[in-house]
Design a protein around this nucleic acid. Structure first.
Lengths: 207, 207, 207, 207
DNA sequence: TATGAATGAGGATTCATTCAT
DNA sequence: GATGAATGAATCCTCATTCAT
């Protein structure tokens, strides 16, 4: 992604800096309002208060500016605002904290997450990028699951990798259902139920 | 959906019958090959061996013929080919059979399921249709879960509706991952792991 | 016009007779409802309760069936329903009777007169047909005017032909304004004012 | 009308100015040559020497550019080229001058006047616009007639409004007959006869 | 850097007319 | 005579991208 950005050199003047930032902010607005497919470069430029041609001073096209916007969000998805997880060691508490963080971030960026979903369906590059991220995430979780299994605190007969994937998509898909498709489920109940499902699924023994 | 189809009267001739069927078959091919957005009416007509105008004798546009194609698939998703579930009463066996049927159907229609996903993202009507189906499905499962809870065979502290939704999306999303995105997981292992996750999640007691 | 009709031989069976009549009646409805340009052969056939192909058993196309419909109306325009002009000899009374008849017929057939106007603007043949009729009509009136001038009962310094045309179009255009464009003018006042304008314009001396 | 034009902002560049003007000029040519219905946007663009897409930089469609063309003509119809009516006060002379101006303008723009007629028949907006103009024009004339009646210089028993309408349409329809349909009548004779008909119709007393 | 005008490819859709049954 | 399915030509309009000022 960072390669893509660097194709068009970063702005050298303050003025350029401002224009580029304005374009990214405008792009986010437009993507959230219209979705990816219906977002028009001309609308982004207009929203940024620049001429349509200026867009191409900083970006090669829609795909590239979307990458810039997406990066912002995904950074937030990975480094949640409120952490405060110091000292939490109980697996169940960890899972709950992770789920809550994720769902909270998802909720905050729901419109853009929907667009991310859209783009992943349309664009090869984004699809792969996202699959890799999902895989990396699942691998981390799979390791955690293996560890729990080895210490006898989780059901040993589950395939760690499949399980990790399955529980992950369960959470992310429910987030989509609730925050994008507006399936009416109270936030707190969602968090606790999903957490409980993780715990049960793993047959997690409290220490 | 069936209303949409009936706008343009069904063919009254054998010849018309054949043409219409050819168009639907051709549409499925084209949708699977190109996806929804890139599918061109002219390609469908050509693939069906008819003049481009003939398409409009039977359908009002891409949306409508897609509905016809989708209906075929969704019928199959609901009435799986191989049933043989006679005499199965154990909840675990029922769940496994249901999961296996679903995954098998999904696999068989993977390309089109991907397109269905695409369309749901693009088209309001399909999105709603699909949400309603998901809800109806979840409600059936929620009832089953409630029954199990009441008879003490499933964990009582789970919200039946959220649980039903969550376990459903877990399966369907894994199907997407594996059969559309080609995440490499062996079929049988997928079935048993997902089933085990259901069983664990519900804390299902074998009779 | 009659040549056009005869191209496709008249129906030989009773059944054919009925179909042809149904088509003409349906055509009039459709023309009145949709205008000439927007009238579709398929709509006419449908309204007549026949298959679209049957249309061509009796007519060569839209132009031809319109001619058939127009002929009906123009016959009525020339042979008004209520005449009762027996014994009227005073020029003023004759003019008033003629104007009243014309305006009454126009009002009764307003929708179709509007279509006639439309067709004359679009179709060369109809335009010429109509110009000839207008000319023939003007010539009759011009003769009348000449006669009145020669007997000293009408202003001698008017060109009879131009005058005849001018007074004719004054009446027909006012009919269009009032009955098609719904300019709100009471019928009787319209008749008497137009008649008075004729009388004044010709400086008509009552015997 | 002017609102419609302003939807697409006026050009901000000299180059743009030139292109827009070229399009309007080209449109007039094409409309005059082909009529409204048969005029193709692509032909207009080609005639203006621009890419087909450039048309849409300045106009939303055929209707809008026609409005721009029509406005030019109608301006001329209202502000005739040669005036020289200084010092004319005699009603008869005024009427003759007005008729001559109108007929001269009509003759000069005959092709486009025919198209205007066509469009009024097809397009709701133009039809209404034109009716309103006709009404406004008739109202002015009606006032003049009333004034003449009150000062005893015109026949008192005519309805001013109907009379104004009738005499107006008489002139405009004759213009159509002569300059569009090529009814062969010498210009000067047309002017004097129509004027005489006005004078007679109003029973105008020379001062 | 910024501007905004110019470019032009590309596919849906309608409907009069024909013709095999 | 009646049917109704098949044909296919023909134009509109959008919008990403370029480039001369």
């Amino acid at each position: 992604m960072s390669e893509a950005e660097s194709r068009k050199g970063l702005p050298r003047t303050k003025r350029g800096e401002r224009t580029r930032a304005a374009l990214i902010a405008a792009a986010r607005e437009v993507f959230e309002r219209d979705g990816y497919l219906d977002a028009k470069i001309s609308d982004i430029s207009k929203a940024a208060g620049t001429a349509s041609g200026s867009f191409y001073t900083y970006f090669d096209g829609k795909e590239e500016i979307f990458a810039a916007v997406a990066e912002q969000v995904q950074e937030e998805m990975l480094h949640p605002h409120v952490r405060g997880r110091t000292g939490v060691t109980d697996p169940r508490d960890l899972i709950e904290a992770a789920n809550r963080d994720y769902l909270r971030s998802y909720k905050r960026n729901a419109r853009l997450m929907a667009v991310l979903e859209e783009v992943a369906l349309i664009n090869e590059d984004f699809r792969e990028l996202r699959m890799e991220r999902g895989k990396a995430f699942a691998e981390r979780n799979a390791k955690m699951i293996s560890a729990l299994q080895e210490s006898g605190r989780a059901s040993a007969d589950l395939d760690p990798m499949i399980t990790a994937h399955a529980l992950s998509v369960m959470v992310s898909r429910m987030a989509y259902l609730v925050f994008v498709q507006n399936q009416r489920i109270p936030f707190e109940k969602l968090v606790t139920t999903l957490t409980q499902l993780w715990v049960n699924a793993l047959q997690l023994e409290s220490d």
